[in-house]
């Protein structure tokens, strides 16, 4: 048995392989190497743990895929003293991410992939100027060794016939497949919200007091609820059983203190079969501090 864990992942050597066998085999393979044909070599940006686990889950990495979009965000008019969603900015955030994701999925579909694992969707402010950012999606396209068990005609792709996407790490992906679930796609919801400034009278009225500012609380609630609701609607469209690994983050890109993006992202999953069993993990107590 081998424990794949970044902290103490060594073999305990009880697998019956003579100690000299493995290195000799490895060296023999190196000696036999031929210069490769173009296109016969895959690339992946998975770490070693993730790479081996994805292989063990029954998937072969076939290539690094990415999509990107440099997006200019338009001008939004808003009221200084009013809680409101800034729809132009929300739309920009949605549209640009969609563009990046679609391009990445198109690359994967071209490679004949069944899905994309380890996707990272990020926004980078590069030296293009104000109001312009790069939206980028990077992941590793994978192809399954065996057709999917259960329904869906043995296909790993989602209902739209597109490769599935998942922002889960290789470790989480392996766990998910072992537990009898398959990812359907990344789902996201975003809401750019302007939190109202307080008027002078309001500020003066509670000087020196400990009070809740209902106006601010409500604004944060509204924005988060909107983002999460949109994410849930995307998951419903994919006929998902649920969404795992949700991250709900607030990004304050370059908009100053009162304008914030609330961004919810997760992976929608479906059960591979009705009667799947979730394995009981063994408990370990690490002794390394």
């Amino acid at each position: 048995m081998t424990v794949f864990d970044s902290a103490d992942g060594t073999s305990d050597g009880s697998d019956g392989i003579p100690p000299q066998g493995v290195p000799a085999d490895a060296m023999r393979r190196l000696a036999e190497l031929q210069p490769g044909k173009p296109g016969s070599i895959f690339t992946s940006d998975l770490s070693v743990n993730e790479f081996l686990l994805v292989r063990e889950a029954g998937f072969r990495p076939i290539g690094l895929v990415l999509g990107s979009s440099i997006y200019h965000v338009g001008i939004q008019l808003g009221r200084w003293g009013k809680n409101q969603e800034l729809t132009t900015l929300s739309q920009a955030m949605y549209h640009a991410r969609e563009l990046a994701m679609t391009r990445m999925e198109a690359e994967a579909a071209q490679l004949g992939a069944d899905g994309i694992v380890g996707v990272r969707l990020s926004v980078e402010a590069r030296d293009f100027g104000n109001d312009i950012a790069e939206f980028i999606a990077i992941g590793t396209a994978v192809k399954a060794d065996h057709p999917a068990p259960g329904g869906n005609g043995g296909s790993w792709r989602n209902l739209k016939g597109q490769p599935f996407t998942s922002d889960l790490s290789g470790q989480d992906f392996w766990t998910l497949i072992r537990a009898g679930y398959a990812p359907l796609g990344m789902v996201m919801g975003t809401c750019v919200y302007h939190i109202a400034h307080r008027r002078m009278g309001q500020m003066l009225s509670n000087i020196g007091q400990n009070v809740e500012i209902e106006q601010f609380t409500q604004a944060l609630y509204d924005a988060r609820e909107l983002a999460m609701e949109r994410m849930q609607r995307e998951a419903e469209e994919l006929h998902a059983e649920g969404v795992v690994g949700v991250q709900l983050n607030a990004h304050n890109h370059r908009w100053g203190g009162h304008t914030t993006e609330f961004f919810a992202i997760g992976t929608a999953v479906r059960p591979l079969r009705e009667d799947h069993v979730i394995e009981r993990p063994a408990l370990v107590l690490g002794l390394d501090g």
């Binding site: 048995m1 081998t2 424990v3 794949f4 864990d5 073999s11 697998d15 686990l53 063990e56 392996w174 766990t175 072992r178 394995e279 993990p281 063994a282 408990l283 370990v284 107590l285 690490g286």
Partner: peptide
Amino acid sequence: PRTLTVMP
């Protein structure tokens, strides 16, 4: 070798 699920 098989991977072992553990819960630290």
